[in-house]
């Protein structure tokens, strides 16, 4: 498999759930910033008018008939990229926080570094979680250290939705189940021998919609992810490692 990627064989995927307000602008910015890349929006069973907006935009859409959650939406994008022979999958959030203009820089670094999974990181530059609320900061520190302990490399922004993933990792990511494709996915890939790295990015404030983490989900998320990180270590022993 080639280690460098052709832009025309690169897919940008945006998982969206109830993002009718922001999705048109995000799609427009991606189209302007990344004209050589293909685009897919995974509509994760939105209850608002997201589907209608997407239809009006004429963008390729994979629509879940019911809401499956962020992890499954990303997995659908991985399966799509795998099925249609893309060399690279780039995921970014639909809430307008990621700047599509930065994706090109991430893509160049991804090409140069030959990473299998390059994570757009808000914190790798400063090695600090800045002004994040205390509970979120604690969670990010915990998962960052878990990646260090179990993947052998500290990932500062395990919850980033901006990632570039090489086709060699598609099979592994399609096979197993993940909570939200965060720390557990990064540890799993690392344990299989895939090269996971970070690239500094900045993000904007969410413009509309609500976070996918309700107060209850925010409490359960650390337990679920921590358990899946531990199980990722075990499961990697039973899985096909990355071919050299």
């Amino acid at each position: 498999m080639s280690e460098t990627s052709n832009p025309s064989k690169t897919l940008v995927a945006i998982p969206a759930f109830n993002e009718a307000v922001t999705i048109a602008e995000v799609v427009g910015r991606v189209r302007r910033s990344l004209p050589d890349f293909d685009l897919l929006v995974v509509n994760d069973g939105s209850l608002d008018h997201t589907e209608d907006v997407l239809h009006g935009l004429g963008v390729a859409t994979a629509t879940h008939l019911c809401n499956l959650g962020y992890g499954r939406a990303i997995q659908t994008a991985v399966k799509y990229a795998h099925r249609f022979g893309y060399e690279t999958l780039i995921t970014l959030d639909a809430d307008g926080q990621h700047q599509p203009e930065q994706v090109l820089a991430l893509f160049r670094e991804y090409e140069a570094s030959h990473s299998d999974c390059l994570v757009g990181s808000r914190f790798v530059k400063a090695h600090d979680y800045g002004e994040a609320p205390f509970d979120r900061r604690m969670g990010m520190v915990l998962f960052s250290w878990l990646t260090f302990v179990f993947a052998g490399k500290r990932i500062y922004d395990t919850t980033s939705g901006l990632k570039a993933i090489r086709s060699s990792a598609f099979e592994a990511l399609s096979r197993w189940h993940f909570v939200d494709f965060h720390a557990e996915a990064l540890v799993y890939l690392s344990r299989l021998g895939f090269r996971v790295a970070e690239f500094p990015i900045t993000v904007e404030e969410r413009r509309a919609g609500v976070s996918m983490y309700s107060p209850l989900k925010a409490m359960v998320y650390p337990a679920k992810t921590a358990l899946m990180v531990l199980l990722a270590v075990v499961h990697a022993r039973y899985s096909q490692p990355r071919s050299a």
């Binding site: 189209r31 004209p35 685009l39 004429g58 629509t63 008939l65």
Partner: peptide, 18 residues
């Protein structure tokens, strides 16, 4: 099943029509 339906329906429209 939901993922598969989504993938098949998206295929009908053609991949990545940017």
């Amino acid at each position: 099943l939901t993922q598969e339906i989504a993938l098949r329906n998206s295929r009908d429209k053609g991949p990545g029509d940017l």
